[in-house]
Write a protein that binds this DNA or RNA. Structure first.
Length: 484
RNA sequence: GGCGGCGUAGCCAAGUGGUCAAGGCAGAGGUUUGCAAAACCUCCAUUCAUCGGUUCGACUCCGAUCGCCGCCUCCA
């Protein structure tokens, strides 16, 4: 089955046809590193991570590039405020960015190009644009002349004469057209700068993405992703610059844009001040819950940030992870699988899961419909739990368990929503301690000393450890912080 | 004003021109358990913002209305 993708450029779903067979080029607009990113900024990091991982799962050799904007006004202002250099600010928040996305379970990109590492290439590209007369310099600044690009507006479906120029922000007098945008900014006193044919200055925002995406992915590549607010002008400008510079018809073939995270019906943003950092949120909620919170909604729609939503996602994520843990606990460590037997009841069960599996993948293939796919996943979870309840009565159960685990592992290759830490049992010493406590409590239970056995369980619950008694023994796990 | 999108149960949220609609959370009852927890079962939208139209038939297509959001050069 082909993967269908909603392309902002065409305004409809298209079948994915790779530009070349060697690799799939995927560029996503990354952070401007002047502060910790907030949970709204995290949305593209997470949804494009999942899309990328699904493409890899489907066998595409994805080359994934995310830029780091490490020079711009906000960084300069922050540096001034903190009394340090722009580079120190950028380095500080690049490190924080890497820490945070790792915690969020986002796989690292193949390349994280930084604007300041590509100044020469940026200047060379601007030079080319000036030579072609699609850009002009004015007092040390260089502007792109949007009237020179016939298809300007193709992505955002905007017409130049219908823009409300200057409505929000005063138009720079030196521009020939109000929609012209800056390629090179002359340095003001005290600002960091690089020498250029137009004097000391620094790159404008849009040009870095054109230069770096094409450097690492070629002048035409498959996917370009980012938030919906980047459609205009950022991505529109990227297309204009890139196609003017290289003469290519296609810059990025498929344009993917994620919806916003709203805070009480309003877009979450730094400038509105209504934001929660990803870093802060991860202190309260498990990352599996945060990812699930995003993935239970289609990536193009808006999401309203709410604690109720995150609490619900926390419970949901735990349900999935507990089922996975049970599967793992049931199968002997030294089990060697052989072929699944197509016998009677086992066969019915396997076929049922296979049907759900097929629906799950079909949902993912339809424009990465993660909410639909996760709905199917929870059908699988319910069937799995039923199977687990009857596992003792089943023949060939270990083979089926082994197969089920492989299915969950498969889904998690792109979702990343199963907590595989095994409830902390990877800490061997702690588990040894817990086993000692459980052994003592087991003795109390045999003696029907319920009061003491229950008190022990309650005390451990207060410490964030949940005990679960079952006919086959007692297990322990961490309580989700949020659910205490 | 231009462009784009949205409105499905208490909450979140998929989906289809034709068994009057997945899944999750919350809630009610039950099974299991020494009691819990976890799990399972049952119940929880004659209805898909409103009003028209097309159709044998629409929540799904078309039009209008109402409400909400985003972009129109800081912005994921």
């Amino acid at each position: 089955m082909a993967i269908k993708i909603y392309n902002t450029l065409s305004g409809g779903k298209e079948e994915y046809q790779p530009i070349n067979s060697d690799y799939t080029g995927f560029y996503v607009c990354g952070p401007t590193v002047y502060d910790y990113f907030h949970i709204g900024n995290a949305r593209p990091f997470i949804v494009f991570d999942v899309i990328r991982r699904f493409l890899i799962f489907r066998g595409y050799n994805v080359r994934y590039v995310m830029n780091l904007t490490d020079i711009d006004d906000k960084i300069i202002n922050r540096a001034k405020a903190d009394g340090v250099t722009s580079k120190e600010i950028a380095d500080r928040y690049i490190n924080a960015f890497f820490e945070d996305i790792q915690k969020l379970g986002v796989r690292p990109a193949d390349v994280y190009p930084r604007a300041t590492d590509h100044i020469n290439e940026i200047i060379a590209t601007i030079k080319k644009l000036v030579e072609q007369d699609v850009a002009y310099s004015s007092a040390g600044d260089v502007f792109y002349d949007v009237t020179k690009f016939a298809n300007y507006g193709q992505l955002s479906k905007k017409k130049l004469d219908e823009l409300q120029a200057g409505k929000r922000i005063a138009v720079d007098e030196r521009k020939k057209n109000s929609a012209d945008f800056v390629l090179w900014k002359a340095a003001k006193p005290g600002e960091p700068f690089w020498p250029s044919p137009w004097g000391n200055g620094r790159p404008g925002w849009h040009i870095e993405c054109s230069v770096m995406s094409m450097k690492y992915l070629g002048k035409s590549f498959d996917f370009h992703g980012g938030g919906q607010d980047l459609i205009f002008p950022h991505h529109e400008n990227e297309i204009a610059q890139s196609c003017a510079a290289t003469g290519c018809n296609i810059f990025a073939k498929y344009w993917l844009h994620n919806g916003f995270l709203d805070m009480k019906g309003e877009k979450m943003s730094k400038s509105l001040g209504n934001f929660v950092t990803a870093r802060g949120l991860m202190e309260t909620y498990p990352t599996t819950a945060i990812r699930l919170f995003f993935l239970q909604k289609h990536y193009r729609g808006p999401i309203d940030f709410s604690e109720e939503g995150l609490n619900a996602a926390t419970v949901t994520a735990q349900r999935l992870s507990l089922t996975y843990k049970k599967l793992k606990d049931l199968i002997p460590a030294d089990f060697v699988p052989n072929k699944l037997e197509e016998t009677a009841k086992i066969g019915d069960f396997v076929r049922q899961i296979q049907a759900l599996d097929s629906d799950l993948l079909a949902a993912m293939e339809d424009d990465f419909n993660t909410p639909g796919a996760i709905g199917k996943l929870f059908d699988i979870v319910r069937e799995t739990n039923k199977f687990i309840d009857e596992v003792a009565k089943r023949e060939d159960a270990n083979n089926v368990l082994h197969w089920l685990i492989s299915k969950y592992d498969e889904y998690d290759r792109f979702f990343g929503i199963i907590d595989k830490s095994h409830a902390g049992v990877d800490h061997e010493q702690l588990d040894g301690l817990m086993q000692a406590i459980l052994k003592t409590r087991q003795t109390l239970r045999k003696e029907k000393n319920w009061a003491l056995a229950d008190q022990l369980r309650d005390d451990l619950a207060n410490a964030g450890i949940v005990l679960e008694d079952s006919p086959s023994g007692t297990t322990w796990r961490w309580q989700n912080k949020i659910l205490k």
